[in-house]
């Protein structure tokens, strides 16, 4: 083990010298597709920059930024006070870049005749007070609730906007990502789930919530009740012209807007 340590010490020194052109991105699986697209876009233009993207959850992003293990933290929620404070204590100054807006569509299987739920009904379904689709105008089928894992910004947004501190029923299934929510819902006729706007396709049906269907327009105008901004956090504002700076300003360019739109999220710019 000692030899390993010695080896590591020397190699780490060498490593730092050659680490100028890497950008490590960690965080939310919701922001993941945007980060991945931006990463390939940047790497195509600047082959000398190596960008790696992990999708391990918003909290992991914040943790990475705090520990200096990542340069950009993707987050689908804003930083918590505790995280901010911990950063400040360590001399790290998190700067938020809002790269896109997102709604949380409530997803059901397309065979489900239910078209419209209120936030209250969604809440009751997840609380376990409504357990059958019959109670909300559907057929006599037990509701299978599916939620994002508790370790995700998406879950915390849902908890904040829908659950209002209520505790989700115990038999709720948890899955690790937006994609997994969609695949669970599309294979389970009686399921209900929620995911990022970019993950909705024709294999699942996004319900109207309070009569508003989730779309770029309704999210942008604030009509759709379950919406949120998506962030990338950096430590301080990146130096002008640096690869990092270029990365976190892509969303402000025309190409960036197109990518955000094509991935299915709502851009913050309107060219």
């Amino acid at each position: 083990m000692k030899r390993i340590i010695a080896l590591v010490a020397t190699t780490a020194l060498v490593g730092v010298a050659s680490a100028q052109t890497k950008i490590v991105i960690d965080g939310s699986t919701t922001v993941g597709p945007i980060a991945k697209a931006f990463a390939e876009y940047t790497m195509a233009a600047h082959p000398e920059v190596n960008i790696s993207v992990s999708e391990s959850g918003s909290g992991n992003g914040a943790k990475g930024l705090l520990n200096g293990t990542c340069d950009i933290a993707d987050m689908s929620r804003s930083m918590k006070d505790t995280e901010f404070k911990a950063c400040a204590d360590k001399g790290i100054q998190p700067v938020a870049h809002v790269v896109a807006l997102d709604g949380l569509p409530i997803l059901v299987h397309p065979s489900n005749p239910v078209k419209d739920l209120t936030v209250e009904q969604v809440r009751k379904i997840y609380l376990g007070e409504i357990t059958n689709w019959k109670e909300v105008g559907g057929p006599d089928q037990k509701i299978v609730t599916i939620s994002r894992d508790t370790s995700s910004g998406t879950y915390e947004t849902f908890e904040e906007k829908v659950m209002e501190k209520g505790k989700i029923r115990e038999d709720c299934e948890y899955v690790g990502s937006n994609g997994a929510i969609r695949s669970r819902v599309q294979t389970t006729p009686a399921a209900i789930g929620y995911a990022g706007l970019g993950f909705v396709d024709k294999t699942v049906k996004a319900l109207k919530v309070n009569g508003i269907s989730p779309s770029a327009e309704t999210v942008q105008s604030g009509q759709y009740p379950i919406a949120r901004p998506l962030f990338m956090y950096t430590n301080g504002y990146p130096a002008l012209g640096s690869p990092l700076y270029q990365f976190v300003t892509i969303h402000l360019s025309e190409d960036g807007q197109e990518m955000v739109e094509d991935i299915g999220f709502v851009p913050v710019t309107a060219y």
Partner: peptide, 22 residues
């Protein structure tokens, strides 16, 4: 026939939001 959760899966899945510095 019902879903369950195990220790190992909880560790792997929940690490994302768990934070040791705070």
């Amino acid at each position: 026939l019902q879903p369950i959760r195990t220790l190992t899966a909880t560790i792997a899945g929940d690490m994302g939001e768990a934070d040791h510095v705070t």
